[in-house]
Simulated assay, not measured.
Amino acid sequence: MSTAGLDRRTRRRQETIEEILDVAIDLMETEGVAALSLSAVARHLGMQPPSLYQYFPSKMAIYDALFQRGARRLRDAHRAALARATNADPFANDLIAISAFCRWCLENQVYSQLLFWRTIPGFEPSPEAFAPAQDSLQDLRDHLQAAVDAGRLHPDATSDDGIALFTSITAGLLSQQIANEPDASFEHGRFIRLLPAVLEMFYQRYAPTRGKK
């Protein structure tokens, strides 16, 4: 988050918040997402645990801030890919966008666990934290609508069921890749390389002739 334009005190507070979140992510990478400890975060920052509560009242508040940060970064990476997807073929554009989405998830697995898997008992993101994720879903719906308008997909592709199927099959590939080959790159992952085939299956499911005899 940019601190430009903030007064010195507010800027310093925001910088400390970002430092706390950075340390939390580092600890979650080594100790596990659900094993985050406020005392460990404070110790790595060289502050007393009570001082940490001036910035985050609870561990769940840190998770919430990390969820929002991750959802925002993923949304922005997806939007950047959408901006580059200028092919005449909607399928090629969708493959560019979803590839960027999955690449980011593989390169940021701690955030991915927080965003897509219930690894923290009792955690639910706040509406504010969840807002960027909703933006991403709307971006997906709009992008699929462009394929519908181009005559490459049936209108049902943008229905709630269509969106659920699209996110389920892509998340399934990610889950398999992270579970079985967490250190493999996007280019060499045994499961994630099936992404074009999965997208083709979606396009076949929602072909423009869907429901016609």
Results as ranks from 00 to 15, higher is better:
G5R: 07
L6C: 06
R8I: 15
R9S: 15
T10R: 15
T10F: 13
R13K: 15
E19A: 13
L21P: 05
L21G: 01
D22N: 12
I25C: 10
G32P: 11
L36C: 04
L36M: 05
R43C: 00
H44L: 11
L45N: 02
P49E: 00
Y53Q: 03
S58V: 09
I62F: 05
L66I: 08
L66H: 03
R72D: 10
L74H: 04
A77K: 08
R79N: 13
A81Q: 04
A81Y: 04
L82Y: 10
R84P: 09
A88F: 07
A92R: 13
N93H: 01
A97F: 08
A97D: 05
I98G: 00
A100L: 04
F101P: 03
C102R: 10
C105R: 11
L106P: 00
E107T: 10
V110W: 04
V110L: 08
L114R: 03
P125W: 12
S126P: 04
L140T: 10
D142K: 13
L144Y: 07
A147N: 03
L153K: 03
P155N: 08
D156L: 13
D161I: 10
D161H: 08
G162D: 00
T170V: 08
T170P: 03
A171P: 01
S175R: 15
N180K: 14
P182R: 13
D183V: 12
E187L: 07
F191V: 02
I192C: 02
I192T: 08
R193W: 00
L194R: 04
L194K: 03
A197M: 14
M201C: 14
F202N: 02
G211T: 11
K212F: 12
K213F: 13
